[in-house]
């Protein structure tokens, strides 16, 4: 039975496919409820009820929306570049979901535990801009094109500061592997002060400015309000999505929300200790790590939807100023400071 085609290739491939399907299904259901939560939070801030008709408390709203999108007629504008027009949503949703292959949900729960995990995430999320550019260009219309141009410039600008934030974390960890990043947060500032392992060890405390910059850059990178200029409805109707309808539109939305969740879980892994419990006592250790992971992701997402609810939209030149003149210098200086501190204290 050893070394047959089955045991070398077919079985691992089957296992991998099963794992991917599991993650995919869980992720899609999670996204459905994240969307619902986003609308509910937004509604609550504005003293509205939000979705409350489909199912108890409106819990099935997202699934109703899904059915509506799927059964509607996809309209392709006659002037559109058909191939690219239909490829764009596919590209954006595929890339947004592909990144999840390397995200560690728990100590051993990761589909592909690759050496360069964080680079892979960074690379794939830098490709996500193509879905938007292609959608905007292929629509052959003014608003989508303007939206695509804005989005491309915005995402490229904020990737720079995200990159430097990741570099500071990498300096502290000394590995590009995402699981190693969480392991590195078992001990930190808290244990150095003689406290037991707790949330004080996580990277958010020593790298607090970077944590804030990452949070804000994440908003800009995923085109969330207050940086949703690519789809600013008062200026561009719906930006690059104007010409899309039914299933292709749903895929663009899905890609966007998958990317948002990805940034949330990346924040969790880089700064909030991934699956680690907040305090090292037996009753919290007994809770499975995936629960802590999800709680942290949801907390970050709650921050994102609160920001959406009460921060007014930025002007485009202010957005660029913030990215290039504020975040880039701060994160560059922090890289240098972190490197010096690590070297001089002998921690690296």
């Amino acid at each position: 039975m050893e070394d047959t085609f089955f045991s070398i290739y077919a079985w691992p491939a089957l296992v991998m496919i099963a794992q991917s399907l599991l993650v995919l299904v869980c992720l899609l259901v999670f996204i459905a409820y994240i969307l619902y939560a986003d609308r509910k939070v937004w509604a609550a801030v504005q003293l509205r009820r939000g979705p409350n008709v489909v199912g108890p408390w409106g819990l099935f709203q997202s699934f109703a929306d899904l059915l509506k999108f799927v059964f509607k007629e996809p309209i392709i504008p006659s002037g559109a570049n058909k191939g690219v027009f239909l490829l764009a949503p596919l590209v954006s949703v595929t890339l947004a979901l592909a990144t999840w292959a390397v995200i560690p949900f728990n100590e051993t729960w990761v589909i592909a535990n690759i050496n360069v995990g964080i680079l892979y995430v960074f690379a794939i999320s830098s490709l996500e801009v193509y879905g938007i550019i292609m959608a905007g260009w292929a629509s052959n219309s003014k608003y989508p094109f303007l939206g695509a141009l804005r989005s491309a410039a915005q995402m490229v600008s904020y990737e720079v500061s995200i990159g430097f934030v990741i570099v500071t974390v990498l300096l502290c960890v000394g590995s590009l592997n995402l699981s190693d990043m969480v392991f590195a947060q078992r001990e930190g500032l808290g244990t150095m002060m003689g406290l037991p392992n707790s949330f004080l060890d996580w990277h958010w405390l020593p790298l607090f400015p970077m944590f804030i910059i990452f949070f804000i850059s994440g908003l800009a990178e995923t085109n969330r309000p207050p940086f949703d200029l690519p789809e600013a409805e008062s200026e561009l109707v719906a930006g690059y999505m104007v010409e899309y309808s039914s299933a292709p539109y749903m895929m663009l939305m899905l890609g966007e929300y998958a990317a948002i969740l990805l940034i949330c879980s990346l924040t969790t892994i880089l700064f909030l200790g991934g699956w680690l419990p907040p305090v090292d006592i037996w009753i919290l250790n007994w809770v499975p790590g995936i629960v802590w992971f999800i709680i942290k992701v949801v907390l970050i997402f709650f921050g994102y939807s609160m920001v959406k609810a009460f921060v007014p939209r930025y002007r485009y030149d202010q957005l660029m100023r913030l990215g290039w003149k504020v975040f880039l210098p701060i994160s560059l200086i922090m890289v240098i400071i972190t490197a010096f501190v690590l070297k001089l204290m002998g921690w690296a």
Binding site: L119, S126, L127, V129, V156
Partner: peptide, 25 residues
């Protein structure tokens, strides 16, 4: 060469080709 592969993605596709596409569009 996994590092080179990822850098190729980040630098060439994520940045250079975007600007390229910009200009061509």
């Amino acid at each position: 060469a996994e590092f080179l592969a990822m850098i190729l993605l980040v630098v060439y596709i994520g940045a250079v080709a975007v600007l390229f596409l910009f200009v061509v569009m």
